[in-house]
Structure formats: C-alpha cells, structure tokens
Amino acid sequence: MIKLNETPVRTARNFNINNIKLDNIEIRRRLKPFQSAEVFLESSKDVALREIYDIVLEYGICDLLTEQASNYELTVNINSKMKNTVMVDFKFDEENDYLVDKIFIDAKPDTKSNVIIKYTSKDDLEYFHNGDIKLRAGENSEVNITFVNLLNTKSNNFIAIENEILDGAKVNSYMIDFGGKYSISNYYSNIIGKNANNNLSTIYLGKENQVFDLNYIAELYGEKSSVNFEVQGALKDSSKKHFKGTIDFKRGAKKAKGNENEACMLLSDKARSLALPMLLCSEEDVEGNHSTSSGKIGDKELFYIMSRGFDEKSAMKLMVRAKFNKILESIKNDELKNEIIYEIDKRLD
C-alpha cells in the first residue's frame, strides 16, 4: 500500500482526506522506451527541444513516484513570442503500455507560448502513466498550457505538475481530467514573482468506479501576485472525487489575491464528492476567497430544458456541457476542443 498526494496541512485522520492510499500499484524499475509519443511543432524558430531532463520536483505525488526512472524525457525551451502551439502527444497501446514521462518547459523572459500535453489510449487495456511536468515561467512571460487526460477508465494516471512563476509572468493552466481508474493529480504552483499570476481551470468527469484525487497547491510569495483555481466536475455511477485545494498566502505577499471555486455535479446516488478547500494566511494585506458546492442538477433547470424537447439524458448532457463551457471555450485549438466535447458526450452516455 502506498500513500499519495498528502495535503500540505493535515486535518483529522477520520475525515479521510489527508492522503489517498492505493494498493496494487505496480512500480516497474526497468522500462523500455515509450515509442508512441510525438511532438508537434509548427516552427522550430521559437522553440528548442532536447531529450533530457534534470529537474527535481519540490512537491510531487509521493517519493516512490517522483523517484521512478523515466522512459521519456523532454526539455522545451521557449525563446520568443510564438503564435503556434507545441503539442506533446502520448498514445498508449499494447506495445507502449507503461509511461514515465518527465517534461521541463523553460519559458524565457518576455516570451509567449502555448503548450498542450495530451494522453490518450485507444483501447480498454490497463495502462500506467506517471508524469512529472515542471514549468518555469521567466519574467513577464506568458504560458498557456493544457493537460489532457483522455485515458480509458481501467488505467492508472499519475501526474505531478509544478510551476515556478517569476516577476510579471502569467501562467494559464487547463486540466482536462477524464481518464483513469485512479487519476491522481498534483499541481503545485510556486508564485514567487511580483505581479505573478496563475490561473488553473479544471474539468473532470467521473464514471463507473473512477476515483479522482486532485491536490492543488498555490503558494503566494510575490507582492500583488494572484492565483485563481476554477474546478468544475461531474460524477456519475459510483465515481468519487477528492478535491484538495490550498491557497497559501506567505508573509510578504502584500496585496496578493487568491480565489478558489470548486463545484461538483452529482449525477448519481452512489457518486461521492469529498472536498477540502484550504486557505492558509500569514499575511494581513491579502484577499482570499473560496467557495465549494455540490449537488445535483437543479430540477427546475432540468424541467425547463426538457420542456424544450430534450430527453432527460440529453438535458443532463447539456447541463454538464454548460458548466464546462467556460473552460472549454478557452481552449483555442479547435481540433482538440472537438475531441474533448466528443469524449464528454461519449462518457456521459
């Protein structure tokens, strides 16, 4: 049994949210290279790629996972303001069923970039994914980064993401978290810079016996820095979600702002939503807000939509889509957006 995704501050043990314990996770030591990965890059003018990685994560999901040897390494150097998107596309198949990827994205000062990192599986075999992704956003850079997990519901998905955000830099992260029997994600944002800004928008969608464990942490050190977590999800069947969101205002983060909003739609009587939205504050001159809610789709809304000729299932889909829309709209890549919409439709069937 391993304990994963510890929260930065513990609460009572019998609340069952300080960590998640998993059995039967096979940590392989010797891996063959993962061949089914492609990097799409429209122009190499702005970006330099190297097949190395020498970063250590500060947080991570647990030591066992962060210390696991990798079979895919990549460093992406962003050198200018780019118009196009860098996409790293991992496709699991029978031959490539076990991936430990380590990716470092180094956005130089004053650059602008769009990055997509995507994981898909084409069949229902049991795959294993353990990814470490580190992003450094240099002074006044802007990075839009999208993580897409469309794995099947039999696989195990572990992903640890870390940001280091310097003065005036802005990182917009998007997480599409749909796949995995267990989908354990760790997002740690170290907001050091003055006026540094981080937005994270997540949508998750659970079905069958899926378990999502989301551990999001933002530490604000910089003056006038800000963070915004927006998490929208829906759970059907016996799926479960643990959301742990921590906004930590460190002393000196004057005029910093932190917002956290988490909403979970329960689509079944057996679904379960567990939430721990923490605000930690050691600085007076800050503004921190969080809100969290859960419940089913409103009967009135459902009735209204059905009165317009939708059957219950389509009405439900429409409502879920509506909740996800704001985040979906911010995905600029149409092909990817359509793929996600198709997945939402399929998974809600």
Binding site: T11, N16, I17, R272, A275, L280, H290, G295
Partner: peptide, 10 residues
C-alpha cells in the same frame, strides 16, 4: 495567522 481547513464529504 489565519487558516481555513474545511472538509466536505457528500
């Protein structure tokens, strides 16, 4: 210091 640590289990 002021911390808010609420758990919701629905």
């Amino acid at each position: 210091i002021s911390d808010t640590i609420p758990t919701a289990d629905v």
